[in-house]
């Protein structure tokens, strides 16, 4: 093999393996999950009511394997309309993996294998004839680190509607963009500089831009993967207010490391531990009177 000589100024390329930012976490960091006997002993089945009255997302017996690692074990959980479900638990417990199953972002990880019944409004998410593009249009996602595209603020928000063909003319597109920015609480800050790059905004603004980008596609469910972990307290407070408003309209599943945040924004809370869903219940019950020993240990700060 004749080698290609790298030109000066280029360092050798970084090998792209599993995605950064939380998504790849379960693969390497939680060896304990592989220990089936251990998880079965500590939490043989979920405590509390997994169902939701007005369920949009219905998961029954969901399992995820990353290669040889059994990352999610037999999860059953509903997410209802106009409901915010907080997913909490120690690092590597499978919360992020769980929400990435709901819009099939795990598809991008080569070694991931998902089994079980995942339904969105009654249709099987993992059915062969399910269209991922349509699914992801219906299930939006906001990531841990704000990731605006290298485009203008306007184009960032218009990206989704454009690719999906949601607007038939420029006026409709403008409408969607303004409406989304408005509902994301960003319109007053950026309306004079829609042509400037989205990457020029502050971290909190960027994250709200990403939320605006997500709701511009008019999804039914919004998944949030620790959306505030990279932000300062003030920006976090604004996002939490925003989540509260959005819950009027969408079903929201939010992964968080902050128990205060879970307590503030969610209606129901689900506690994950070593790939198991240990306990689900109304948020105030989980934080004041948890049924399971592990949940109690976690919310009282004995570990985590």
């Amino acid at each position: 093999m004749l080698l290609m000589d790298k030109e000066p100024g280029f360092v050798p390329m970084r090998e792209r393996g599993e995605p950064k930012d939380g998504a790849g976490k379960p693969a390497g960091k939680a060896p304990a999950i592989a220990d089936a006997a251990e998880t079965d002993r500590i939490a043989p089945e979920t405590v509390g009511d997994i169902t939701s009255k007005n369920a949009v997302i219905k998961v029954r017996g969901g399992n995820v394997h990353y290669g040889d690692t059994h990352a999610l074990r037999n999860i059953s959980l509903d997410v209802g309309r106009n409901e915010v479900v907080a997913l909490i638990g120690p690092s590597g417990c499978g919360k992020s993996t769980f929400i990435r199953c709901l819009n099939r972002m795990n598809d991008t990880i080569e070694s991931a294998r998902v089994t079980g019944d995942f339904r969105l409004d009654g249709t099987d998410i993992y059915a062969r004839d399910t269209d991922v593009v349509l699914l992801r249009a219906r299930v939006g996602m906001v990531f841990q680190k704000p990731n605006p595209f290298p485009k203008s603020i306007y184009e960032n928000v218009a990206y989704g509607p454009r690719i999906h063909g949601l607007a038939s003319n420029r006026a409709e597109l403008d409408d969607i963009v303004y409406g989304s920015l408005e509902r994301a609480g960003l319109v007053n800050e950026v309306k004079d500089r829609l042509d400037e790059p989205g990457t020029g905004l502050s971290g909190g603004q960027q994250q709200r831009l990403c939320i605006a980008r997500t709701i511009a596609v008019n999804p039914e469910v919004i998944l949030m993967d620790e959306p505030c972990s990279a932000l300062d307290p003030i920006a976090t407070a604004r996002i939490e207010d925003l989540i509260d408003e959005l819950s009027q309209q969408y079903a929201i599943a939010i992964v968080t490391h902050s128990m205060q945040q879970a307590a503030r924004v969610s209606n129901r809370t689900a506690y994950f531990h070593l790939g198991r869903l240990v306990e689900v219940g109304p948020t105030d019950k989980i934080f004041t009177n948890p049924s399971h020993k592990l949940t109690e240990d976690y919310v009282t700060g004995r570990f985590g």
Partner: peptide, 25 residues
């Protein structure tokens, strides 16, 4: 192609994820 490969791989994965999550092909 080698130079392009380098610069394409330097684009963060988060950028791709953001686009895929919106339903882009």
């Amino acid at each position: 192609s080698s130079l392009s490969d380098d610069v394409i791989n330097a684009v963060p994965q988060a950028m791709r994820d953001g686009s895929y999550a919106l339903g882009a092909t």
